[in-house]
Amino acid sequence: MEGDIASIGAGLAAIGSGIAAIGVGNVAGNYLAGALRNPSAAASQTATLFIGLAFAEALGIFSFLVALLLKFA
């Protein structure tokens, strides 16, 4: 199969998306654990949850972007 070195780089960069998935799972899991311990405080922290998810996910999106750039640009 033909290809170039950039494709390998793109594939490596895509690993970052998976690692970001760990981060997102961490945020959501810890939120859930905390919410189960103290359900009354859970509703007030949903905004924080989404901000945390967004920050964790943004870094995964960066690596996705790097993969796209290597592959297509």
Partner: peptide, 16 residues
């Protein structure tokens, strides 16, 4: 940067 790339990246990724 993160504000704009997060939005564009999420939507692009989904469509791709």
């Amino acid at each position: 940067v993160s504000l704009s790339i997060r939005l564009a990246g999420n939507i692009t990724a989904g469509h791709v």
